[in-house]
Design a protein around this nucleic acid. Structure first.
Lengths: 224, 224
DNA sequence: GGAATCCGGCTAATGGTATTAGCTTCATGG
DNA sequence: CCATGAAGCTAATACCATTAGCCGGATTCC
């Protein structure tokens, strides 16, 4: 009967630990039983702090999205300083702009490697939102939607800083996300046979993405 | 008591139906209960034909890999004919070679859109193989490993046909897979907000991938 | 200070899942 | 015609989430 001193935040924190301990798939395999055990509490007690497994997943996803958002923000601002050195050359810079994109991509991959479960939680977020978790008035759903929107906005900013016009922003963001997530998903799923030169392969993917963004910028300049 | 006339193959076929009926996530959410119900049989009866849920998943993954392999093979050979028209120009063709890559990418995406669950099963395969399902003497594990190797070999062939030297094949295949799978995974996970112009965005991703492969070929020519 | 309330733990019960054990029955082959 | 084996079944076990309802300690209010 000694109180464990739990709270929604504490449960989420423990959940994040459990998810991280499970590697990739740690989010999918998350279980209330595991959280309860680590909290030193019986399973039903968790329902006093959290709506259930789905709600806990949504909260964990929200935290994960925020964490990735911070990483992206840091990559953006960290290289914006470098990029601001040459002032009026925002239209034809291939150096600093590309560097910012590379840093962004590497930051996301590093996050995924450091926190596979959290990264999976981020990818899980859209499913939750599509299934009506947001907009139903639930605070958890709204928080997740807001965090996801912020993260996507961050990617928009990064590509806008590349001089990409609004009309191609959607395509640019999708190219960025597809490239990075495709590599990371395959890497974490064990899809690449040997861990042979993974960093070099990732560089190839990133360079293709950077070149694709530049091509997109060029194409839009022509069609305008 | 009337016999249902099941067999391992029949169970797998029903499992494929169930997986397809579940959309993306249909593979993850696959349940023996659903298969048994559709087969008109009690759950434990399935164990007479299949080793259990994991074994059924492995067999479904094998079938899915084979199906995708056929799609890739068709995309390869279908455009190899076109490519063979100009004979000795295998080194500098930007047209027919790129067309083959585009067809390959579109074929994979079409497969994923037509059979989301099977596509998920394909991505699930490496996990099974890593966890020692192959090489343990089990026929199911060996069959999956063989099917996966065949599929990867098919991708190798496609890039070799692009004039990519052996040294960059690994990077090229990883670029191809990352690009296509990244887009498809995000698309199927609902990661792209609106279904707005998805085809156009995919084209952007594919073109970036094609250009990346060509860059890879060029870079290897220099470093040699 | 004492009483009422509420909060956060608990146990018990329900229903879904996979898996194993063991029974029965039908079809088949000697 | 009977023996055997394959293929179905029920029963039982073990895990999971979820709900209902109890209980005790802390807090708050008079």
């Amino acid at each position: 009967m000694p109180r464990a001193g739990l709270s929604p935040e504490a449960v989420v924190a423990i959940g994040l630990d459990v998810v991280d301990a499970g590697g990739p798939g740690g989010f999918e395999r998350l279980t209330l039983a595991a959280v309860a055990e680590r909290a030193g509490v019986a399973v039903p007690s968790l329902y006093k702090h959290v709506g259930g497994l789905d709600d806990l997943r949504r909260r964990i996803a929200t935290e994960s999205v925020r964490a990735l958002d911070e990483v992206v923000a840091e990559a953006n601002s960290g290289l914006a300083a470098t990029s601001r050195s040459g002032t009026g050359s925002a239209d034809t810079d291939d150096g600093s702009g590309a560097a910012a994109l590379r840093a962004l991509a590497r930051g996301i991959r590093s996050f995924a490697l450091a926190h596979p479960g959290r990264y999976a939680a981020v990818q899980f977020a859209p499913t939750q939102l599509r299934d009506g978790a947001a907009g139903d008035g639930s605070a958890a759903g709204d928080a997740l939607a807001a965090a996801a929107a912020a993260l996507l906005g961050r990617l928009d900013d990064a590509l806008r800083a590349q001089g990409l016009p609004e009309a191609c922003l959607v395509d640019g963001v999708r190219l960025l996300r597809s490239s990075v997530h495709g590599f990371v998903a395959l890497e974490q799923g064990g899809g690449f046979g040997l861990p042979d030169d993974l960093d070099r392969s990732f560089d190839v993917v990133v360079e293709a993405m950077v070149a694709g963004v530049e091509r997109l910028r060029g194409a839009s300049a022509i069609s305008r």
